[in-house]
Design a protein around this nucleic acid. Structure first.
Length: 510
RNA sequence: GUCCCCAUCGUCUAGCCCGGUCCAGGACACCGGCCUUUCACGCCGGCGACAGGGGUUCGAAUCCCCUUGGGGACGCCA
């Protein structure tokens, strides 16, 4: 990995001037959201890349809130960002720092810059500047400040802005791990403002000062920042500070190839939680948007930390695809153990209004339920649903029947399968299930029980399965019979088959 | 308008740096089939791409140039 070649411009004696005793080899990355909205997909991916890289290298990950746009920054956004990061399991070692609390630091550096002749005060009005831009545009040039106050050496007074004295000749080169080397002609970079007339710092200044003082040596960010980089390099150079490593990651586009916005999937990351996505699936999907490891698609969190690499970040932008996220989520749901899924499952149940009052067989912590419910096995319930749930919301929905006290039969299902000719088989099923001791309640013994039913009724299992399914769930679509019975428990199973028997009886007495 | 970035199946991508093993591999989606007590899972197969044009070369997805297309930035926003 190469460091920016521009660091060679920095005098040796100054090289460690800004280092606070941190080991130079420690990778320090950062995520600097501006709290003007929630955390969206693109931001989450940037955070993830930085986090992964710091974790992989045993480095540090710093969280910094860039709230210098005080008009648009809100406390709600800050909280939303924290919440989303927490959900994703992206933790930070330092911060959160708030730029608004660091104004003194910026002022200090701005003074240094002015004193050393790298910046100057300017009292041109916004209208004047706009006129300069207009003029530039008219001649087919890039709209820029024309440097009117550059050499006037104006004394600083309230109400004046401070501008950087940007180099006029040559070019500024950005060395980037993903984009390679890009030269920006200095004629394209104007003397941009680093301090507003109200004394607050501008973005490019604050970022650089923060990155320097926080010892950030690795900057991974969206490539919409690539054109900002030469400006920032100019500040680094003016301060004699070493350059960090830059990695500009292509952006995530919406499905219409336009910049991600609310219209697309650019919702808050926490909305994906509400839609039933697993954090690990989210991470897995996000990382594959722009990064690859050969043909591998599925990654656990640990694998990601081990295998992530800056070298394999792609160069072209990608589009967000909900289908692929969903497919990946299904795989992650399958790969988890039922006990890992349990808390998420329970909270999704609650959201659809199911709050199991009773204890679960394997969860003896919860008590106080109806007698017949105490055999419900939470982990087995989850297990039966894992291969058929693409999201945790789906899983909760599909589990409804487990928690019902009385099954409402789907009309056409009942009509087709709950008929008098099945009564004998159902009765015998009840009998043989009943004869299994609770302690011996297993898939194997259930199989034996149904084998007996099949023998005695001379029916194939296919004939018996659907009526049993309808009896247990009310519908013709469900998990496998045996696994379902195991999850449901003996008492509840018998009760439901009995109920189906009653249903047949009442219909045929009429 | 100016500057910058990017360009492989519909989508995410491998391959590109170090040309031949690529009439281009994987995944999602889609379409068939198998498995099967339903639905899924799983498995097998199919559809489907090197943006276009010039070079360089014995040979180019891979290197160079141009065109086109897409994106980004040009702010007393970040």
């Amino acid at each position: 990995m190469k460091r920016g070649t521009n660091s060679s411009l920095i005098p040796c004696s100054n090289k460690n001037q800004y280092n606070n005793g941190e080991n130079m080899d420690t990778i320090i990355t950062r995520f600097p959201p501006s709290p003007t909205g929630y955390l969206h997909i693109g931001g989450a991916r940037t955070a993830l890349f930085n986090w992964l890289y710091s974790r992989q290298t045993n480095g540090k990950f710093v969280l910094r809130i860039e709230d210098t746009d005080e008009a648009r920054s809100t406390k709600e956004s800050v909280d939303a960002i924290f919440e989303s990061l927490e959900w994703l399991g992206i933790d930070w070692d330092e911060g959160p720092y708030f730029q608004t609390q660091r104004y003194d630091i910026y002022k200090d550096y701005i003074q240094k810059l002015v004193a050393s002749g790298h910046a100057y005060y300017c009292d041109c009005t916004p209208e004047e500047v706009e006129a300069m831009r207009e003029e530039a545009r008219a001649t087919g040039k890039k709209p820029m400040y024309n440097g009117k106050c550059r050499d006037l050496n104006k004394e600083g007074k309230p109400g004046m802005v401070v501008r950087i004295k940007a180099p006029k000749m040559g070019s500024t080169v950005v060395d980037d791990v993903v984009k390679g080397s890009t030269a920006f002609p200095n004629s394209e970079i104007d003397d941009f403002i680093i301090q507003r007339s109200d004394g607050s710092p501008m973005y490019n200044l604050a970022v650089v000062i923060d990155d320097i003082t926080m010892n950030i040596n690795t900057i991974i960010r969206g490539d919409d920042h690539l054109v900002n980089t030469p400006k920032q390099i100019i500040i680094y150079n003016a301060l004699g500070a070493p350059l960090p490593l830059f990695a500009h990651v292509p952006m995530v586009l919406g499905s219409d190839k336009a910049r991600l916005s609310k219209r697309h999937g650019a919702m808050s990351v926490s909305e994906y939680r509400d839609m039933g996505f697993l954090p690990d699936a989210m991470l897995n999907y996000l990382v594959r948007l722009g990064w690859s490891h050969g043909d591998q698609e599925f990654f656990t969190r640990e694998e990601l930390i081990a295998k992530f690499s800056l070298e394999h970040i792609g160069r072209s932008p990608s589009m967000f695809d909900m289908d692929k996220l969903t497919a990946l989520n299904a795989k992650h749901i399958q790969s988890k153990s039922p006990s890992e899924l349990a808390p998420i499952f329970l909270s999704n149940l609650e959201k659809i209004g199911i709050t199991p009052q009773s204890g679960f067989a394997s969860n003896s912590g919860m008590q106080n339920g109806l007698e017949f419910e105490t055999e419900l096995n939470l982990e087995k319930i989850i297990e039966t649903l894992q291969p058929r749930s693409k999201t945790m919301v789906e899983m909760a929905e599909a589990s409804r029947f487990y928690f019902k006290e009385t099954i409402e039969f789907d009309e056409s299902a009942a009509k087709k399968f709950l008929k008098p000719d099945i009564v004998e088989a159902l009765r015998k099923s009840v009998h043989y299930i009943e004869s299994i001791a609770s302690a011996d309640f297993s898939e194997k013994n259930l199989e034996n029980a149904f084998t007996k039913v099949m023998e005695e009724t001379n029916l194939k299992f296919g004939k018996i399965a659907q009526p049993i399914r309808v009896a247990l769930t009310g519908t013709t679509v469900s998990p496998g019979i045996f696994e379902m019975i195991l999850a449901l428990g003996k008492t509840k199973t018998i009760q439901r088959i009995q109920q189906a028997l009653n249903h047949i009886a009442s219909l045929n007495r009429l």
